[in-house]
């Protein structure tokens, strides 16, 4: 039975749809779990209960109910908007966010699309999502949206640099840009023991800013800009943007876990469950940061990236290179 299944999976035309379905399943479940977690974790941190009704048990189906609500809502395109760009923007943001999930190593042999340069693929895909945000911001013909877009662009340019540099330090240490190889060369404790722990914090901070999550949520600051580039969006298109955000949290957590925390490796029984646990733990930290820190001011945000994170990540690159050349083990 298992052998027959294995033979069947050797066929490319059988394997490919299975991979696509598996990646889609991950894409459609994990972001919802994180979204629900955000509702509940934030609620409990603020001494309230959060959703309690939908799905009987502690509101577990709240996000499904939200999804049904979004589908029913009218899809409005403002009269002054640039219709095509406005309509296409959610897709431009969402599609790269889905594709990233195809390149993450989920287990020893569970890599949907293995690539020699997997690390760069994931970085490239997450940088494409920005174009969708800018398209939405400009095409809405709304000054709050445009302001949000400008802030988003400035922020993403600034934080892309430390993000890539921290990832490059890992690639240097592992001697490969293949995500599967990077995991294989780590112990189950990952790169968290050693100088790369600084890289983990730099990467985490920069990723939080890339996702425009609090305390780096200047582009959608609700008290100043209504909702930034999302202001004019309704219904399904709005839901797609929200889905992009939560999928981004999951995929960035997965990449961070892969790069620094040993990916699917664990102290016992290696497998995808370890990656899932690490992703959920990192997502929890993302939510925790949201309910703990106040929003940064725009100039603080910029100077933090250019004057703190960039020099630190450059120094880290230097240290890792030095240790690598003189073969001091990490």
């Amino acid at each position: 039975m298992i052998d027959a299944a294995r033979d069947l999976l050797d066929n490319y035309w059988v394997l490919m749809p299975v991979k696509v379905l598996a990646v889609l399943a991950i894409f459609l479940t994990f972001p919802l779990v994180v979204g629900y977690m955000e509702h509940k974790v934030m609620a409990h941190m603020q001494a309230r209960l959060g959703p309690m009704e939908a799905g009987r048990f502690h509101g577990v189906l709240q996000l499904v109910a939200d999804g049904i609500k979004f589908v029913q809502k009218e899809s409005i395109i403002p009269k002054a908007a640039d219709k095509w760009v406005f309509a296409l923007a959610p897709a431009v943001a969402l599609i790269p966010a889905i594709l990233v999930f195809g390149f993450i190593p989920y287990g020893p042999d569970l890599v949907p699309i293995r690539s020699d340069v997997g690390l760069f693929v994931t970085l490239a895909l997450s940088s494409v999502s920005v174009i969708g945000v800018l398209m939405a911001a400009w095409s809405s013909a709304n000054k709050y949206s445009l302001m949000g877009g400008i802030r988003a662009a400035a922020q993403l340019i600034a934080y892309e640099l430390p993000l890539v540099l921290a990832a490059a330090a890992v690639a240097m240490q592992a001697g490969s840009a293949d995500l599967a190889v990077i995991v294989e060369r780590q112990g189950w404790w990952g790169y968290i023991v050693g100088p790369l722990v600084i890289g983990f914090f730099v990467y985490g901070t920069a990723a939080l800013a890339e996702l425009t999550r609090p305390p780096f949520d200047m582009p959608v600051a609700d008290s100043e800009l209504v909702f930034g580039h999302l202001t004019e969006y309704t219904g399904l298109r709005f839901a797609f943007f929200l889905l992009t955000e939560y999928a981004g949290i999951v995929s960035q957590s997965a990449i961070a876990a892969t790069l620094f925390l040993g990916g699917w490796k664990g102290p016992f029984l290696d497998g995808p469950w370890w990656l899932a646990a690490k992703v959920l733990a990192l997502s929890f930290v993302v939510i925790w940061a949201r309910s703990t820190y106040p929003r940064l001011r725009e100039d603080q945000l910029q100077s933090f990236a250019w004057l703190r994170l960039v020099p630190v990540s450059l120094a880290l690159l230097l240290v890792v290179g030095f240790l690598k050349v003189y073969e001091v083990g990490i």
Binding site: A124, S127, V128, I131, L134, I157
Partner: peptide, 16 residues
């Protein structure tokens, strides 16, 4: 992929 990171992700974003 470096083309995508640099040109699409950085340069066009800067132009926009």
């Amino acid at each position: 992929f470096v083309q995508v990171i640099i040109y699409v992700g950085a340069i066009v974003v800067l132009i926009l």
